[in-house]
Write a protein that binds this DNA or RNA. Sequence first.
DNA 1: TTTCGGTGACTGTACGTTCAGTCATTAACC
DNA 2: GGTTAATGACTGAACGTACAGTCACCGAAA
Lengths: 218, 218
Amino acid sequence: MPKETFKNISEEKRQRFIREATSLFAEKGYYGTDMGELARRAGVSKGSIYNYFDSKEDLFLYLSDYNLGLSRKAIYGTLDPDWDIYKQIEHIFQTGAEFILDNQDTMVVYLSMTSPGMEQFANARAVITEKFTADHLKRELAKGIEQGIVRADLDINMTAFIINGLYILFVASLSTAYFRIRLKEYLEMDEEINSDNIQQHQAKIIEHIHKMLRPPKG
Amino acid sequence: MPKETFKNISEEKRQRFIREATSLFAEKGYYGTDMGELARRAGVSKGSIYNYFDSKEDLFLYLSDYNLGLSRKAIYGTLDPDWDIYKQIEHIFQTGAEFILDNQDTMVVYLSMTSPGMEQFANARAVITEKFTADHLKRELAKGIEQGIVRADLDINMTAFIINGLYILFVASLSTAYFRIRLKEYLEMDEEINSDNIQQHQAKIIEHIHKMLRPPKG
DNA sequence: TTTCGGTGACTGTACGTTCAGTCATTAACC
DNA sequence: GGTTAATGACTGAACGTACAGTCACCGAAA
């Protein structure tokens, strides 16, 4: 949904624009973002932005899709479907965390869609967004049960819902103000979460998932 | 932080105002809410609102506190501290769900604080808000371990973080557009979540928490 | 000279906040 | 009981700012 012009400009200019737009939306939120300020930061004129996109809303939706695509590529592009479900979950948390810490704004823009007053975006994207992950998790859970490494008395849909929920909570704790504070409080941390101390927390969450999924004895 | 005037008006008028304000903020979000429209809906004049509160921001913070207080009273006011941790968790999910379904907007306003562009609110409230629940959960987990009904190899802080995270996810799934759609997708439901079908989902989540906490054998 | 990306002053609207004044109720006094 | 003064909630037009979106024009390249 970008206009032709946006496809014609140099890759460098396009990347800078996407980066600055994502950053500004992440910082100020959708309503707080001023197209004039975006123009300044991205080093283009306001008029140019409207040569690139039809509207602010259109730009925001494009960024959501674009950033979701990036994180998906980072995670699923390097995931081996032959790994067992535990290894896959570990990979998702691991590469997901790395990606978010390097691209904090990406996840913040995505989480914007979950806010009140953003229903138009939520309705347009939630189903598409979640379906991919849901299907993948459910498939792997079913496989795990067949292999006997996941307890058979679990409701697959609900289990997938919960695992993905923990993932969302985890990345939100890395990227948005409120949840970062919450994480620090709960874990009684002295410093904010960062790429150095993250490994241990992530490992503990996965340990909890193990406890939830592993068959009672074995 | 309401002004004197707000305390002096009739209880009925005050309640109506709080109700309409919560409802409008929940529907449109903080930035989408127009003080003029609020005045119309609440049946007062624009000027009166500014006799009640210093500013829009001030009003929003008050509503957050007020609504958080309501849900806390509904949940913890009816919780017996002698129950074991599993019974307590069940009670929290149960009464929490009932309260949210009857007061959807309440939770939406609270969740607003987690959105980008709302940092000023997050920073002002996150610590206070989470501390209460965190302390309660950690205390009960420690007690449970002593009693031998919770596995002793769990990290208490992380476990509390996860349980409360599941609760947030659960109530978000009952109240905000994006997460309602997500829940429906994951659980392959034909209808949206409501007070009739909620019981079963809630029971399943608690089952998962049990699997995470119960000692391996016994 | 046609094409096309770029520009930024401009426009119209939306909205938070203010304020000068109104009006109903209560208090004070005779 | 009647008159007057004080109180304080209430009002909505008006103000100022912010900001999404437009447009008439520019300059370079082909």
